[in-house]
């Protein structure tokens, strides 16, 4: 099973790099959807030793949420804001990719700090960390509100993956609650983006800096 699991991890890592290197919002939304499906659905199935009904159910729920609901919400926000690409991010794309590599190295270091449970791929924790750091980086380095929401989703994906990697026994209730929160969060952010767009006629969060000091 391990080679399969590892290749899934590698796939996730590649999506991370794609997100870091892409300027087109549409592409980003699709990439994050794929990442969500892989991390939320495929990964648990392939990495778990015993597939339970509970796991199956959660997986389907997560796949639906991240593969369908989030992309739809985001696309709508994007359309309403009539922005299709990130023009001038705070950090350029080449630099972002290099940063991605650094994140991966840091993730490996952090992964080594945490003892991995038996039967879990050695790549699992680093991958999760990579996702979290990529998400945070997106929030920090991009200008558009939509990209920041994408970043937030990547962070959530990463956390989910981390949960899978280090703890099998998180009660499903909590897991679902977390998902629900993520959903609500994205939903709320979507509304906020809508508001911002309406009020300011742009959704460049980099220009939201009236309040200071």
């Amino acid at each position: 099973m391990m080679p399969l699991v590892d290749s899934v991890h590698v796939l996730i890592l590649v999506t991370c790099l794609l997100l870091l290197g892409s300027s087109r919002l549409g592409a980003c939304i699709r990439t994050v959807a794929i990442q969500g499906i892989v991390a939320g659905g495929v990964l648990p199935w392939v990495s778990s030793l015993h597939i339970s009904m509970q796991l199956l159910f959660t997986g389907v729920f997560v796949m639906a949420l991240k593969g369908i609901v989030f992309p739809v919400l985001l696309s709508r926000a994007m359309r309403e804001a009539s922005a299709s690409r990130e023009m001038s991010p705070f950090v350029g794309y080449g630099t972002s990719l290099m940063a991605g590599v650094l994140f991966f190295l840091a993730s490996l270091w952090l992964g080594a700090k945490l003892p991995t449970p038996d039967g879990v791929s050695g790549l699992a924790v680093p991958t999760a960390c990579m996702m979290v750091s990529t998400g945070l980086f997106l929030i920090i380095a991009r200008r558009l509100a939509v990209t920041q929401v994408i970043g937030y989703i990547v962070v959530e994906n990463g956390i989910y993956a981390l949960g899978l990697a280090v703890a099998h026994d998180i009660p499903v209730l909590v897991e679902l609650g977390a998902m629900l929160d993520a959903f609500v969060a994205v939903f709320v952010m979507g509304i906020a983006i809508f508001h911002i767009n309406r009020e300011f006629d742009h959704m460049d969060s980099g220009r939201l800096n009236v309040l200071k000091g």
Partner: peptide
């Protein structure tokens, strides 16, 4: 020092991350 509170959300989040990294 008040320049630290410049109103840029991105950097605010960077502070969080830096704090996390520093503590780790």
């Amino acid at each position: 020092a008040r320049g630290l509170q410049h109103g840029r959300l991105n950097l605010y989040i960077l502070y969080i991350v830096l704090a996390l990294v520093a503590l780790l």
